[in-house]
Computed example of a mutant assay.
Amino acid sequence: MNILLWHVHGSWTTAFVQGPHTYLVPVTPDRGPDGRGRARTFSWPAAVLEMPPESLRDAPVDLVVLQRPHEEELATRWLGGRRPGRDVPAVYVEHNTPRGDVPVTRHPVADRADLTLVHVTHFNRLMWDNGSTRAVVVEHGVVDPGHGYTGRLPRAAVVVNEPVRRGRFVGTDLLPALARETPLDVFGMKTEGLAAHLGLPEDRCHTEELPQDGLHAAMAQRRLYLHPVRWTSLGLSLIEAMLLGMPVVALATTEAVEAVPAGAGTLSTRPEELARAARRYLADPAAAAADGARARQAALEHYGLKRFLDDWERVIAEARS
């Protein structure tokens, strides 16, 4: 089966393309947002084929996976007039929590009988107004990076992209108080200048952008994973940290309350509780390692790749029936 999808979210797509199909990924000369092509920092199988827009016009496509509102028009144009959901089976994957007047925010494909709307968390399905569109949940699956945890560095790893721009959504404003309790290593895109923005010395808030394999190795050396996110979908870096064997200290918001079970870390809506948990892990490496081992087991059971791909096979079969 040939599945057309755009390279939007690297970690999610890396899991999705592990399935048994051929995946057609648009590529444009500038490799911009609508034509990134194959990932350069993730390992993708040979079944992921780069397709210039002009090659899609006559390409056999069995399913279109939409992820952004404008992709429907783009797909119709690049597929020579074939309309997703009408001429070609289609699903719409919603990666994000709603914005605007939550919880009455209407989804862009609400009230569509020709599409299946796939949410990546139960929280997202609950909070979006999906209208009459068939809405299902396929929870995340993650390629297991292995139990690499050493925790040798008494610091907290934080993974977030664009923390200055995204601000309160990702808990950037909470970092100064947390940095007083544990030194922070913030990994992600566009993190440069964060320490100066927050008025923190570099030794309390170090930032670095790393490729995926380097990121996992760096995370695993930190004593704990800190997840100060207020309002976003479940970050795959949280699941990856658990799979690495890291204990989690996270705000009890959105889907984190389902992802992190008791004994795998600390969840709270009180930043002071997160600070206390971080101090405890810094002082007790054995407790950090034990909670991290439980976090890994929970992530393997809940977010394993086989379950994810099996769930997607069911959604694909239903979309094409």
Rank of each mutant, 00 (worst) to 15 (best):
E273L: 07
R77Y: 11
G81W: 02
F16W: 06
H70I: 10
L5R: 05
A15N: 00
P26V: 08
F169D: 12
L244C: 11
R230L: 12
R166A: 06
P145V: 03
L117F: 07
D144R: 02
V65Q: 06
D291Y: 03
T172E: 09
D291G: 01
H147M: 08
A220I: 01
L126R: 15
Q18R: 08
A59N: 00
L74I: 14
L198M: 10
A275K: 05
E313M: 13
Q221P: 05
V8Q: 03
H70C: 03
E255T: 04
E162M: 09
M1R: 06
P26Y: 10
A277V: 04
R280K: 10
T121L: 04
D173Q: 10
H95L: 14
Y303F: 15
R99K: 14
P154H: 05
T41D: 15
V27I: 13
R314P: 00
S233Y: 04
H206R: 15
E139Y: 00
G10M: 00
L74A: 15
A275F: 01
R165F: 01
H197G: 04
T116D: 05
A287Q: 09
R320W: 07
G10V: 02
V137I: 08
L282V: 15
V159G: 05
P201M: 04
R112S: 08
L5D: 00
F308I: 02
L194M: 02
R155V: 15
A295P: 03
G35H: 11
I3T: 02
G100P: 02
G235Q: 14
H206G: 00
P163L: 01
V48H: 07
E94V: 13
P154Q: 06
R280A: 15
L49W: 12
D311M: 00
T76W: 06
R296Y: 08
D284I: 07
D311P: 05
G81T: 11
Q297I: 11
L238S: 04
A196D: 14
S11R: 13
I316W: 15
G148T: 03
A113K: 14
I316S: 09
L175S: 01
D291R: 05
V158Y: 09
F123I: 14
H227I: 05
L153R: 13
A252W: 02
E192G: 08
G263K: 03
D114S: 05
W78L: 15
V137Y: 08
T150P: 00
G265M: 06
H122Y: 10
A75Q: 05
E94C: 15
T41C: 09
V93P: 07
E192F: 06
P20R: 06
W312V: 09
R223I: 11
V136R: 02
A177M: 01
L274E: 03
L274N: 08
V102N: 13
A195D: 10
E50T: 06
V249R: 13
M219Q: 12
T121E: 12
V136T: 10
A47E: 12
L309M: 06
N161R: 11
R307W: 01
R83H: 11
E192T: 13
A90H: 13
D111T: 07
D203N: 11
A220P: 05
R86C: 05
A256R: 15
E54Y: 13
S43N: 10
Q221E: 15
L243R: 10
G151S: 03
Q221D: 15
A113I: 11
L309F: 01
V143Y: 04
K306P: 03
